[in-house]
Design a protein around this nucleic acid. Sequence first.
RNA 1: GGCCCCGUAGCUCAAUUGAAUAGAGUGUCAGAUUCCGGUUCUGAAGGUUCUGGGUUUGAGCCCCAGCGGGGUCACCA
Length: 606
Amino acid sequence: MNMLEQQITSLAKAAVKALYDVEADDSQIQIQKTRPEFEGNITLVVFPFVKVARKAPAQVAAEIGERMMADGSRLIAKYNAVQGFLNLSISDAFWVEQLLSIDADANYGRFDRPITNQQSPITNAAKPLMMVEYSSPNTNKPLHLGHVRNNLLGYSIAKIQEANGWKVVKTNIVNDRGIHICKSMLAWLKYGNGETPESSGKKGDHLIGDYYVRFDKEYKKQIAELMSQGVDEERAKKEAPLMLEAQEMLRKWENNDPEVRALWAKMNEWVYAGFDETYQRMGVSFDKIYYESNTYLEGKSEVEKGLATGQFYRREDGSVWADLTKDGLDEKLLLRSDGTSVYMTQDIGTAKLRFQDYPIDKMVYVVGNEQEYHFKVLSILLDRLGFPFGKELVHFSYGMVELPNGKMKSREGTVVDADDLMEKMISDAREISKDKVNTLQGITEDEANEIARKVGLGALKYFILKVDPRKNMLFNPAESIDFNGNTGPFIQYTYARIQSVLRKAETERVSGLEVSGLEDKELALIQRLCEYPSAVRAAGEEFSPAILCNYAYALACDFNSFYHDLSILNEPDAKKKSLRLLLSANVAKVLRSAFELLGIEMPERM
RNA sequence: GGCCCCGUAGCUCAAUUGAAUAGAGUGUCAGAUUCCGGUUCUGAAGGUUCUGGGUUUGAGCCCCAGCGGGGUCACCA
């Protein structure tokens, strides 16, 4: 709730108390923005009091309005009642005061602490700690469009929660072991001729990804070969020599075979270097990285502990299970009969290490919605094993990214590679700005490239973040490079234009402010600026960068409408002019702040 | 089949906590504009919010049933 809402709330409560002798609680005070077709800025919905008043809604609204204006004459300039809606016009002086306080607040839209119901009292620290896990790549192939949504959401959520007063640790769990890695390694050994990122000029992750694809190709050949000899498909898949070799390699890995381990380490290094490049390009980062090869053994020992305390049980074949039927779920495997760990076991181990490393109040996993069941189970298991954050863990589940021609399928070659995509966006941005040469006059080649980078990536990021995370989304490459409409570049352009106005005005003297006679467009902008803190709060509570996107778009639209109708630099009245400059500067400030929470850079000119 | 998520303009998406006539962009159509059927601007049309019930002063939002789409129910990760 912002300053204005607080004041209106207390005025409304006092009025209701005086008129009807009832104590209104906060849920009954419903405040909303006045619809543009009515006069006023802010509206109190009086329906909740109609019953106690025993009068017609419009009459109740009028009564309350009269009373509120009498009590708060400095705040409320006038009112009108339409049915059960009490529309209040706030005094210009108040708005200008708000604008000045926004301008003076360097941390506008940032909070010192989370709102209480988000706070988990585990560590009782002054600033509670939230760990956000995202990205979580496998090391056998490069990042694709699905990871892009994951990374952008994860990074943005971390920034948003920081603004909401959490201490945030961004983390990544790298799935660096398992049969999929062995497939790449094997293909590299058999068909690679010692190819390295240096010798091939390929990024490490792409190089390894190519061998993963190569494995699949050769493997399929072998299956076809076997089937032509009369072997049935299922057996052919199991008995293809390549698969047997890969499995043998995995066993060697688990037994610490020095050669296999050395190759594994070398190839993983290549992949990490490639990932780092991609992350850096994308503008995301991590504070702490965990590797599955380090955490899976921890998980095993936790499961053993749970076995000892009777939380889990062992079957005759040696496999270990958790019985979750009491929680309405089924039974879940934790250790295979050969004693090796599964996905769940590794996540338990990772959680344990993390909890040792940090005083975590809240753990957030940014993982696709196809794993909802997994995290439901993980939450229960961690709770049973005595991890305080287990029950509270948040699976920030997001929907899949689809392409216009259907789903992404790596086998069918319809994946969109993250590196390629970013390059494409940047080069498209450069193409488009070339058409508008006049806007780029006086800009050097380097500056133009930098602008294209910010705009291209901004287009991509905004396009993905503006969609409600829970929903599956359609990524249309053609549409994403359209810089009109509700897009990142549109907002960046608004920002850049304000910067340009401010640069031109810099030399001019600012003298006092106009505190009365605010025009509608000015007032609408100030009011919009006042809404920013609650947008940040809502984005944090809902785990939704989309809320910030929509806010930023609305603000940019408001500014454009303002800019279209009212002149700034040509305004003859010096006081009015300085008000408008101040207003513009704060719009730029809030847009920049919002985009920072989205992980999108703002170009100073474009 | 059980459980979870989604269903809003032709398309892509919005709509604080249940509130007034459900909004943008894009596409379509009309007009203006220009080096251009391509750019920009103005305007218009476009909706039974999947269907049917229920709760209430009031439902896109909450509840029940159904329909449609997706996900998930592995000794894969």
